[in-house]
Each structure stands twice: as structure tokens, then as C-alpha cells.
Design a protein around this nucleic acid. Structure first.
Length: 456
RNA sequence: GAGGUUGUAGCUCAGUCGGUUAGAGCGCUAGAUUGUGGUUCUAGAGGUCGCGGGUUCGAGACCCGUCUCCCUCCCCA
């Protein structure tokens, strides 16, 4: 017999936490629905052939792989062991836990493309798993809330993602946030212009750290990653490019030699215009050339949302992927989406004290259990309360009143009905208000009326 | 995956240089109070000192391994 323990990076959610989490889920779901997204659920695990290769090399490593069931090692040879763990893994594992909701969604779209109404807008709220090393705000099991549109190139989708975020976050009480936006095409353009074609991958990784480690360290890293010093010199104006003034105009002259780079800027300008047309006042959006995001499938706009004044990573991220379904044999379906991290949003709200008070009350009234006769009498009252839509319970054991009231107190139950011989004889039950301590003798019907109208 | 750090009662934590029976606060249980919660008082229960090995006459403390928490890198929600 060993002490029970939680698997690394996982958590239980007690009743109190669940009340808060449900609040977050409900708020997000309501906004998704208001924008016309339809619900979808996909399995917790998928064939590895679906998941592998979609998140870069790093991502493949972070996939939780499921060991084949049964005699998974029966057909292995000595050589299989000697080849190392990577080839071995593919021989003993064919399935893995989902890493995000976007790839399973792409799989779903491909498999159902004949029946879907295009453009298809879906939302999906489910847990995902990553074999990461846990840290503050980083878990191995966490929920994502995704909303994606596939089957249209319209930049309205990007603009609607911006307004959607401005709907959800303030509804949760998070008012101080920044939606950072960039475009992969701009990053590609930069790589072209500085003579490092095709190297936007490593360029992104390094440039992404600018605000964290500073220009000098970024330059250092770029040199290590094989960029020539000429290229880095050409990159210089990018470093000094700030969100102020008209960064687009500045960038345009820098990228004048790159068709794709200019396209990226054009797209972003269009998004800005659409956001304004949609009537969003004081949009908290910021163009950030250094925003890169590692996920390899993004091709257009990329988003990241940061809650300000808290030490927690981004609470949301997303972007446009032109060819995600291409890897499943169906090219030409463009999609764009956003993913919100409930667990990080929870941490942010906890840190800022944003959860509304008194969500705790679940039972409104408890019937006491004085003795066997009173218990039976109470059982006849209980369904009347419930039929009147009042959350009610009866104490199951005939123990001392002290204990029963203590139970009600600790469970935050605002009212208790006391039933003894007097009450049974007269039919007038004692209703006790746990907050004020007041008691009144009332008929069962009057109690129902009173509880239905009571503010609590 | 690399580095650092933590682990003692349900919770938060003391525990000196390696030395007798490992402590406190909070919580929990019971009573003071035979039909009344929160406050108060009294009593009580509760420990494989993360786990495994080692050094020692003797280990909660020292050494090695391992797991876990938290942190940095990498990457991400």
C-alpha cells in the first residue's frame, strides 16, 4: 500500500475551484456562440500519424505517446533496441494524447469536408496534454478554448478574433491586456531582405527574445545560428522599430524589395481598418515585429495575448494557417483561429483577485434531522422545495443539532428548516436565517415563497 | 531534454553540532451546551520525517540514487 499521488503536472479541481473554472468556461462559450461558432469535440488521443510532424521537432518530443496495448514488445528484435529510442518508439506506440485542438480540428475538416457548411466556424473546449516540464502557469494537462474558421481567406476573420478577445477578457474582468499581432509573411520578407532566405525559422526564435534578453544577446544568438554579420547589420533597423508612430510605413520602405513582406504589411493594415469598422473602441492591439511563435504551421497573421502586470505567460495565442489540411491530402483550405488557455486565465484572475464573490452557495436550504419522526416529516417537505426550483438537502443522520448546523454553516447554506414535535403538530416550521440568526415560524408554502423571493 | 532548488501531522512551518519519547499554530474529534452554527474554554486523536540504499554505536539532519514541488534555459496556453 503506497500513498496516493498526482501525476506530475496534473491537478485536482475541488468544488471551489470548479465554480471559478465553470465561470470562465461559460463566459468564453457564450462569446464563441455569439460569433456564430459551432461546438465540436474530438477524441483525447489520436493516431500518431495525425499528430507527428505538426508542431516541429520540439513538439514531437512533447507528445505523450501511448504504449501499444497487449504484447507490444513481441516482435521486437535485438537491433530495434540498439537503434535508439526514436525508431523504437514508432514500433511500440501508434497513438498519442492530443497536443492542441487545431490539428485534430484539421483532421476533422478533412474527413468531413463533403458535409461541412463552408466557411466552417467551430469552437472546441477540451483538455490537451504536453510532456513538458511544469512551471508556474505551465501544466502537463490543461484546457484550451479554441475558435477557428476554415474555408475563407477573408481578413475579417482576423479582425473578428480581435473583437472576440475584446469581448471575452473584459467579461472575465481582465481589462488590462495587450493583443500582440504580427504576420509570418513579414518575417519571411525580413529574412529575404537581409539575404537569409528560408531562414525565418531560426530568425523568429532569436528575434522573439528581443524584449527579454536585449539586442546584443539576440545578435549573439543569430551569429551562432549561422547568420552572416552582413545580414545582421541589415537587420538593425528592425530592432529599433517600435510600436509607436507608423511602424507599417517604416517597415514598408525596409521591405520594399520583398513582395511577400509587403503583402504581410498590407494584410495587417487591412485588419486594423476592419477592427475600426467593426466599431471597437480603444482596441488594445499592438503590432510587434518580434512576435514570432514557434508553431510551424502559421503562414499569415499571428496573435498572442498577454495580461499586463502579471508574471504569467501568454493567455492566448493563434494565427492563420494556409495549408494545415494539406498535410492530410487536402490542400487549399485556409484557416485562422485563436486558442485561450483557461488554466492561465484562472491564474491571472486569481492573482488579480478578479473572481466574483459568493459563487459558492449551491444549497439554499437544509432541513434538519432531529429524530426519526421529524426525518420522515422532513422527507415530505424536501421534494416540495426542489419542485419549486430551490436547491435543498436534508441532513441524512439524526445527530445532534449542533453538528447539523455546523455542517450548514461550513457549507455556506443560508437557510435551515428546523422540524421538531412542536413544528410537526402545528405545521408551522422554524426557518432559521444562518446569516442573521433570525428564526420565524412559517408554513411550508410560506417558506417556499420566502425562499423564492429571498435575495440570497 | 540541460541546470538549480524543495520535501517533517490534513494545512503552514520549527526542529541547534549527528544524540533520550520529533514540536507549534491552524484544522480535526469529543465535551462544557438533553432543540441551535460562528466566539470562548477543556481534553483527545493524528507522523514509514517523499521513497530506496549507504556511512555511523546512533540519521529527520551526512553521502548516493530516485520521485516530487518550485525556478532558469528550451518551448509554449
Amino acid at each position: 500500500m503506497s500513498k496516493p499521488s498526482l501525476a506530475r503536472g496534473t491537478r485536482d479541481f475541488g468544488p471551489e475551484q470548479m465554480a471559478k473554472r465553470t465561470f470562465i468556461f461559460d463566459t468564453i462559450r457564450r462569446s464563441f456562440q455569439r460569433y456564430g461558432f459551432l461546438p465540436l469535440e474530438t477524441p483525447s488521443f489520436e493516431n500518431l500519424s495525425v499528430l507527428m510532424g505538426k508542431y516541429g521537432e520540439e513538439g514531437d518530443q512533447l507528445l505523450f505517446k501511448l504504449l501499444n496495448s497487449g504484447d507490444f514488445s513481441g516482435k521486437l528484435t535485438e537491433d530495434d533496441w540498439k537503434e535508439g529510442y526514436k525508431p523504437l518508439t514508432s514500433k511500440i506506440s501508434e497513438k498519442g494524447l492530443r497536443y492542441d485542438l487545431t490539428v485534430p480540428f484539421a483532421r476533422y475538416v478533412v474527413m468531413n469536408r463533403g458535409t461541412l457548411v463552408m466557411p466552417f466556424k467551430r469552437y472546441q473546449i477540451q483538455p490537451v496534454w504536453r510532456a513538458d516540464r511544469p512551471q508556474k502557469g505551465r501544466y502537463r494537462e490543461f484546457y484550451q478554448c479554441d475558435a477557428d474558421v476554415v474555408g475563407t481567406d477573408s481578413l475579417l476573420c482576423e479582425a473578428e478574433i480581435v473583437t472576440l478577445l475584446h469581448d471575452i477578457l473584459p467579461a472575465l474582468g481582465i481589462t488590462d491586456f495587450t493583443v500582440k499581432i504580427n504576420n509570418r509573411k513579414i518575417l519571411t520578407g525580413i529574412a529575404d531582405v537581409i539575404g537569409a532566405q528560408g531562414m525565418e525559422g531560426p530568425l523568429c526564435v532569436a528575434i522573439d527574445k528581443l524584449d527579454k534578453i536585449g539586442k546584443d544577446k539576440v545578435v549573439e544568438e543569430l551569429l551562432e545560428r549561422g547568420f552572416s554579420s552582413d545580414s545582421i547589420t541589415l537587420l538593425d533597423p528592425i530592432f529599433t522599430l517600435s510600436g509607436e508612430g507608423d511602424p507599417f510605413a517604416e517597415l514598408k520602405s525596409l521591405l520594399s524589395g520583398s513582395e511577400i513582406g509587403l503583402k504581410g504589411i498590407e494584410e495587417l493594415e487591412e485588419v486594423w481598418v476592419l477592427v475600426k469598422t467593426l466599431g471597437l473602441e480603444n482596441p488594445k492591439i499592438q503590432f510587434d515585429v518580434t512576435l514570432a511563435r514557434g508553431l510551424s504551421y502559421y503562414t499569415g497573421a499571428i496573435f498572442e495575448v498577454k495580461a499586463n502586470n502579471v508574471q504569467i505567460g501568454s493567455i492566448s495565442g493563434g494565427g492563420r494557417y494556409d495549408n494545415l489540411t494539406g498535410t492530410f491530402g487536402v490542400p487549399g483550405i485556409s484557416g485562422v483561429g485563436i486558442s485561450l488557455g483557461v488554466d492561465r486565465i484562472y491564474d491571472v484572475m486569481e492573482e488579480l483577485g478578479l473572481f466574483p464573490e459568493s459563487q459558492k452557495t449551491s444549497t439554499k436550504v437544509m432541513i434538519s434531522n432531529f429524530d426519526n419522526d421529524a426525518f420522515k416529516y422532513g422527507l415530505s417537505i424536501l421534494p416540495k422545495l426542489r419542485n419549486a426550483e430551490i436547491n435543498a438537502e436534508i441532513y441524512p443522520d439524526s445527530v445532534k443539532l449542533k453538528k447539523q448546523l455546523d455542517y450548514a454553516d461550513r457549507k455556506n447554506i443560508p437557510f435551515v428548516i428546523l422540524i421538531g414535535s412542536d413544528e410537526m403538530q402545528s405545521g408551522l416550521l422554524t426557518l432559521k436565517n444562518m446569516k442573521t440568526g433570525e428564526q420565524h415560524k412559517l408554513s411550508a408554502d410560506d417558506i417556499i415563497t420566502h425562499l423564492t423571493s429571498a435575495a440570497l
